[in-house]
Amino acid sequence: MTALGHTLPFYAGPKPTFPMDTTLAVIITIFLMALVTFIVILPGIRGKMRLFWLLRVVTSLFIGAVILAVNFSSEWSVGRVSTNTSYKAFSSEWISVDVGLQIGLGGVNITLTGTPVQQLNETINYNEEFTWHLGENYAKEYAKALEKGLPDPVLYLAEKFTPSSPCGLHRQYRLAGHYTSATLWVAFLCWLLTNVMLSMPVLVYGGHMLLATGIFQLLALLFYSMVTSLTPPCPLCPGTATLHTHHGPAFWITLTTGLLCVMLGLVMAVAYRMQPHRLKAFFNQSAGEDPVLGLSPEEGGLLTPRYRSIPESPKTPDIPLSEDSSEACCEEEHTKELDCVL
């Protein structure tokens, strides 16, 4: 290696750069396919219920996709800084780079991009992930990174999250990720129950489960904020600058979706109390014409049979009897009267 002019240690393998997490890509693809499938069959829904179906399906798919995506996202806490730092160990050469840190529920992701990318006759563009969920050993992953010879800024930030680091970030963020992920899975289960109940004539319970979905999302944010603030912040100085972290997109989109679920759940509860017919018509559970929405069964409502009430039923017409029939009836009645007198 020395004969080839490399400085020890060096990064022997290819530098992986992933523009997007594959798990998030799979989740988004599945929900987009479900949305496209619904849009294909949407013209088959007649009348004004087409718009109501579109609003319900899009909102439901958005909530479910967000709950799953943020559970696997690595952008709950993010930070980025431009700095000048050493590139490799045992080398006095410095480079100008952008260092990024993304902390998720199951690990950390560290990016290193040169400014410019080509420096020291190398392409400086790294994206490394270190995980601690599902029984993964973070210390072993850090040891493998040392064996690879990753650049100094990547190893410096990865070392801050090791279990033996005095910063205590490993225990802090691992606990936060564990409880937040568990709460989000409960929220996802509530979302599934919401869809089941809203497809049945139990709209009030569907609204309650939607409200529970939002509450569990907000509880997940509460757990994450509380656990991550238990220990004092640890200074992260990769080079000449200090890297500061803040809540990332996953945190804020979870907050937005949780508030949306709570608001929709409360609206459904109030509508069920005050305007139950309108709520049933919106969810395609109204048999007759709705006075507010002006919907008839032919415009998308359930085509249930309408039975005619007794006052509306036509009276049986009186059929006139012939003269012979009337005389026979009179004689029969006169005979019955004589029998009664005797």
Rank of each mutant, 00 (worst) to 15 (best):
I319S: 10
P232W: 05
L54I: 07
T83Q: 00
T316W: 02
S229R: 11
F31G: 03
Q285W: 05
Y126F: 13
A34M: 14
L55Q: 09
L175E: 15
A65S: 13
I103R: 13
V66E: 06
A328S: 13
M197Y: 12
L169G: 02
K280E: 11
G248K: 02
A158G: 05
G265L: 02
A187I: 00
Q118V: 13
L295F: 06
S96T: 14
W53T: 09
S225D: 14
Y307V: 04
G5Y: 08
T85E: 06
T83A: 01
L101S: 03
P166G: 02
V26D: 11
W53G: 00
G177N: 07
T85K: 06
K280F: 01
I310L: 09
G265N: 04
V292K: 11
M200S: 12
P116H: 02
N84V: 13
Y224G: 01
W252G: 03
R171Y: 11
G177H: 04
P317F: 01
L302H: 10
H133Q: 15
P317S: 01
A220H: 04
K144R: 15
I103Y: 07
S296R: 15
V58S: 11
V81Y: 04
T256Q: 00
N84G: 04
T17D: 14
L189F: 11
P297Q: 07
G64S: 11
I28W: 09
S92A: 12
L51R: 14
I319R: 14
G265D: 05
E333Y: 14
Q102K: 12
W94S: 15
M226A: 14
Y138H: 06
W132L: 04
V292R: 11
H170F: 14
R306T: 15
E332W: 15
T22Q: 08
V204G: 12
G177S: 05
R273H: 10
L112V: 02
R278M: 09
W252N: 02
W185F: 11
I95Q: 08
P163C: 01
S181Y: 05
I27C: 00
T213V: 03
L302G: 04
G100E: 15
F10W: 12
L264E: 09
H133C: 13
L338C: 08
T335D: 15
L293V: 00
W94L: 12
F130C: 04
V186T: 08
L266G: 11
E136K: 15
T113S: 07
F52K: 12
D324L: 10
A176L: 02
Y126W: 01
G300S: 03
N284C: 10
S322K: 03
N127E: 03
G79K: 01
